[in-house]
Simulated scan of single mutants.
Amino acid sequence: MTTALILNSTITCPNCGFQQQELMPVDSCQYFYTCRNCEAYLKPLHGDCCVFCSYGSVKCPPIQQGISCCGH
């Protein structure tokens, strides 16, 4: 039995704490994200493949599936 992927993740800005729910891409990483409140330009933390893995409430779909994401 396979577990369904969760495609929505809430990104929390580390700069201002603003939260925004976003739909994650299933076939690519999202490396950059701009906060809609303070306009901070977010990049993944060291060791993470994308902004969802660093700042999201749910890891990106490839990581959920246990596969390599964007070569990491």
Rank of each mutant, 00 (worst) to 15 (best):
P14A: 07
L5T: 08
M24R: 10
I67C: 00
I67K: 11
Q21K: 12
I6H: 13
G66R: 00
S28E: 10
T2W: 08
I63N: 11
A40N: 04
Y33M: 01
Q21H: 00
M1A: 15
D48L: 01
C70M: 04
Q21I: 12
P14Y: 10
H46Y: 13
P61K: 04
S9W: 02
L45H: 13
G66P: 02
V58P: 03
Q20D: 07
C50G: 07
N8K: 15
N37R: 15
G71P: 03
L7S: 07
Y33F: 09
M1G: 15
Y41R: 14
I11A: 00
Y31G: 00
A40R: 01
S57T: 12
C69V: 09
I6N: 04
N8E: 13
T3A: 09
I63P: 00
K59H: 10
S28T: 12
F32D: 12
Q64Y: 03
L42A: 07
E22K: 13
D27L: 14
G47M: 10
I63C: 14
I11F: 02
L7D: 04
C49Y: 02
M24K: 10
K43M: 14
L7Y: 13
D48R: 11
F32N: 08
C13R: 04
D27T: 13
P61L: 06
L5C: 02
N8I: 13
E39S: 15
M1D: 13
S9G: 08
M1E: 15
P44D: 12
Y41C: 13
A4P: 14
N8Y: 13
G66D: 00
I11L: 13
Q65V: 01
C16N: 02
V26R: 15
C49R: 13
H46M: 13
I67T: 11
G66T: 08
T10H: 01
T10S: 06
H72A: 06
C69Y: 00
S28C: 08
T3M: 06
L45C: 08
Q30G: 07
N37L: 07
C38Y: 06
L23M: 12
Q30C: 10
P61A: 02
R36E: 10
V51H: 05
V26E: 15
S28A: 11
H72V: 08
C69D: 02
S54D: 09
M24Y: 06
C50V: 05
G17E: 05
C29R: 12
V51S: 05
H46Q: 15
I11V: 05
N8Q: 15
C35I: 05
D27M: 12
V51M: 03
